[in-house]
Design a binder for these strands. Sequence first.
DNA 1: CGATCCATGTTGTACATACACCTCAACGGG
DNA 2: CCCGTTGAGGTGTATGTACAACATGGATCG
Lengths: 143, 143
Amino acid sequence: MKQEPAARIAQKIATDCLAVRVRRLGRVVSRIYDAALAPHGVTIAQLNLLAAIGAMEESSRGRLCQALDMEKSTLSRDLKRMEQLGWIRSSPGRGKGIAITPAGSRLLTEARPSWEKAQQAALAELGRSAFAQLRQLLPPPGG
Amino acid sequence: MKQEPAARIAQKIATDCLAVRVRRLGRVVSRIYDAALAPHGVTIAQLNLLAAIGAMEESSRGRLCQALDMEKSTLSRDLKRMEQLGWIRSSPGRGKGIAITPAGSRLLTEARPSWEKAQQAALAELGRSAFAQLRQLLPPPGG
DNA sequence: CGATCCATGTTGTACATACACCTCAACGGG
DNA sequence: CCCGTTGAGGTGTATGTACAACATGGATCG
């Protein structure tokens, strides 16, 4: 009936919107990891991508897009930076495979303690059951 | 004892890292809302910010930073864009307050159905209890 | 064989995000 | 009254993100 006032809609979105929660959570969590990883010159986004490549046999762009729910254009640029940094290598030609370089492996090893610290800090911030809940919220790529 | 191989670290991060989950979730959810809101020429980030301003009496930059866990520099740029679009107005001088314009109110009203659709789609994608879980994961700014 | 289509990858543009640094006005001590 | 501190806000630079458009190489079909 009556037109709902804008202030009321604002209230509703501010309190109920899933995206508000998810995005805020992303900022908070990313900051924790980025701060911990800064001394290694790597961001959590990059470390995540590097780990996804290393955890996957025969990693390809398509598979990485699926696994991480990323756009191909985003992936293209992120990979380019990481290749320039010497952490990965992509075979030339079509259907280029992606491989971690020795420098990339070294980075993973060296950054691991900082990652652990950030993981603990994030768990402390969000509560013990955070991981189980997040896992429930977003099932793995396969299903 | 033995140096853990990089592949094993990659596996661990890829499966256990909270940031991987949170960031992937953010991409998936943001895409749902952005697609629904695209016809209105607004992103979910902007709508969230507009709603936060509208939901808060005496909204200021500092308060918005706190409420949304955003950096002041990020907020500064986001507000600038929204002011250029005519959705908000900021008082000149120091301690500038932020206010929604009539155009901003109109946008909230017009975009509301699309937001509802996206919210339903996101809930369907993530499961019914998603909001409660997210709320539990990240308490409101006040505590 | 050649035209057409399709999958894959890159580029153009725009927005979101943050850290480091800068500016500037207010405020307080001397 | 001057100066130093401080805190709010903005800028410079870099990364992350995505949609649209384009490029390209391989496959398919007539």
